[in-house]
Every structure is written in structure tokens, then in C-alpha cells.
Design a protein around this nucleic acid. Sequence first.
DNA 1: GGCGTAATTGTTCAAGCGTATAATAACCGT
DNA 2: ACGGTTATTATACGCTTGAACAATTACGCC
Lengths: 209, 209
Amino acid sequence: MTRRPFHRAPESERRHDLIEATLDCIAESGLQGATVRQIAIKAGVTAGLIRHYFSSKEHILQEAYRVVIARLTEKAERVTGDPEERLRSFIVINLTEPVANSRSLSLWASFISQVSVDPMLSAIHREGYLSFRNALEGLIADFLASKGQDASPARCRALAIAINGLLDGLWLEGCLAGDLFEERELVKIALDSVEALVGVPIGLPKAME
Amino acid sequence: MTRRPFHRAPESERRHDLIEATLDCIAESGLQGATVRQIAIKAGVTAGLIRHYFSSKEHILQEAYRVVIARLTEKAERVTGDPEERLRSFIVINLTEPVANSRSLSLWASFISQVSVDPMLSAIHREGYLSFRNALEGLIADFLASKGQDASPARCRALAIAINGLLDGLWLEGCLAGDLFEERELVKIALDSVEALVGVPIGLPKAME
DNA sequence: GGCGTAATTGTTCAAGCGTATAATAACCGT
DNA sequence: ACGGTTATTATACGCTTGAACAATTACGCC
């Protein structure tokens, strides 16, 4: 019986590794596969350590969900350029790697399935959702204004809901069955659709010109 | 120790009850809450009986997933009337009860999170998805043709993907946060959006005239 | 009307679960 | 250098899990 060697790591790094290991477990075998023991194995530590950093299994799952949401939204919320380019980038980012892939979907769906069960997860979810939709609504308002179009709050709200839905749905389809679509097909469909919805040309992103 | 009274039920009814109990468990507490014992309690039988009807827990979950998909798609695939009315009904049905509610979403998300884990669930999913999208593509083709519009396969495919995405996304939003929308708001947005996408008025459903 | 078949119950088992706790080793201030 | 603090390991506990099995009862058939 040789004892496992001790390795001390900085707190932030350890917490990060543990959450990453949790996400790996969930992506590979769902929430049920994310047991403290499996997480510990994946992180290369022993199970007891998890309770040293997180007060319960529930707690580490909540932190992991925060990370998932951040990954899904952070890139899209930092688009730059003129209004047209920002809106275009927002669309492209949400339908290409690393936001759109089957791992993201597995993680997202695992947590979503618990949103109606765990009020804490529900709160985390709603915060992320509203922030995402508000960001999109802002992009749309700027874009419409820059084109001299009607940018009334009511219209922006409706367009934000519709485009958000469209992006969510296409993201879903792409993650679930990417092989059914041609390269960049979903991005093209999304851009064409948004053009039709707002009634103004958006133009192709640089990569597709 | 008084023994639980025996109650023999017809096979199809028992199987149905067991699957229904499984769905209740999943909706209430996720896949992890769907243990053989919980399912048995919910169905009013003992745990052993489940293994008499289903060769394993995996098996009953697969059957339950089939039921979920059927519930989500069967109504929309049986729309009637002229092409315009069929397309309109398809949209409305998918965004109103009983297809759109938080229970449906919990069930759907629970299974989706396992699609990349269990190949059998993956096959069940893909079958349902393609059948749904093909139905929509047919409706669109008929609708475009009836309006004297371009109904080429390429255009119908792209429109089907876009509208399917839009409906999926709005369904999601509605299920997850129905309280953020006004009554019928999502249906109205969907109809307006589809009009914009196909470039032809669809008209309001009877209930909203 | 009794008998065989099959549905249903109750019990048992090994494995795995989340958590608690004691032993150990690395790091930090002095 | 060393003593205190705490990160980390290891082990233990009580409970739940999916599954297997034996005992029991209802029903169909002759």
C-alpha cells in the first residue's frame, strides 16, 4: 500500500481543475456520471478533497453551471466594430465552435433539465438568459438605428425574442446533428434569416466573402 | 406484516402506467430521480415488477423517450386544412399547450443530455427529429406552391431549417420562462417571423382574429 | 373446479453513493 | 529550524441503487 503523493496546488487552480473535471464527467456521462468519486479521479485527487473546496455536491454543480453559462455567452457579449459587424459577429460566434458543439449542448441540457428542480440553478439560468437577450436587443437597436430604421423598443423587443429563438434553435440543431448540415450552412441560413426578419441586408462576414 | 394486495393489470395498461410513472419521476426530479424504486412507488407497484416488463432500467428509459418524442410531434404532424392553415396550425400547436410547457422541456432536456451518451437514445432522437423537419418541409413546399412562390427543394430545405430552428428556440424560451412573455406573444412573434422569412402573409389563426 | 402459467410481491446482494472524520504532509511566518 | 496551519489523503459509515431470486397469488384453459 503505497500512499498517493501529496501535491499542493493554489486554491484558484484547484477549484478550477475540480470544476473542469466536473464538466468532463457531465459531458461524458451526464449528471448521474458526475459523482464525487468520478470527479476526483478525473481531477487526479481523492474524493475527500472536493468537500474541502465545496460545501456539498450541489454546490460544485452550481459553480459548474455558472462556468457553462459564462462560456456560452462571454464571447458573444464582447463583439466589437460598427453595429452591423457586431450583430453579424454575434450570430457567427453563437453558431460556430467553441460555442456550438455537442459537448456544449450536453452540458447545457444536463443543467437545463434540473432548472425546474433546483431553484438555485433556476436563478443562475435566468440571470444568464436575460443578460444574453438584453445584449442581443442592444445590438439590434444599434443596428436598426445605424440603418435609419424603426428602432422602437417594442420592435426591438420582438426582434430580439425572434432572433434569440432562431439562434437558440439553430445552435441546438447544429449541436445535435452537425453532420446533417454542410460546412457553415447554419451560419448562412441564420444571416439570411436575420436579414429577412429585420428587412435590411447585413452582408457576409469576412470569412465567407 | 400485511402483504400488499395483488392487482393484475393487462400488459399494455401496465406498461403504459410504468412509462407514465417514469416520466413523472423525470419531470419532478430529473433522470437521477427516476430510480426503479421511485418509479414503482409512483406506479403503485413494487420494484421487482419493472424488471418483468423491461429488461433493464435503460430499456424503460428508452421506451419513455419514444413516448416523449411522440407527444411532442404527433399533434403537429396531423394538421389539416389548406396549405396556409396547415402551416399556421403547425406553428401554433408547437408553441402552445400541451407541447409547450415546463414539464415537456424538463423531459426533453433530460433525454437530450443523454443523447450523446447512449447510442440507442441517439437513434431514437434522430428519427424523431428528421420526421419532424420533413413534415415541416412538406408544409412549406405546399404553402409556397399554393402561393405561386418559388418552391425549389433548396429553398424549402433552407426555410425548413430556419423555421424549425425558430420554432425550437421559441418553444425553449416559452417553456423556460413563460412568465417573461405576454399571453400568445410568442405565437404572434413566430407567425410574424415566418411571414418575413417566406415573404408571404400567413394571416392570423382563428383564435386571434 | 382444479391446475399450470405468468404476473406480482417481498427479500436479498454487491456495488456505489454523499458525507464525515482522522491521519498525514506540505507550506508559511517567525 | 521549527511549530502551527491547512491542504490532502485515506478510511469508515449509513444509505440507496439496479439487479437477481424465491415466494405468492391471480387468471385462463381443459
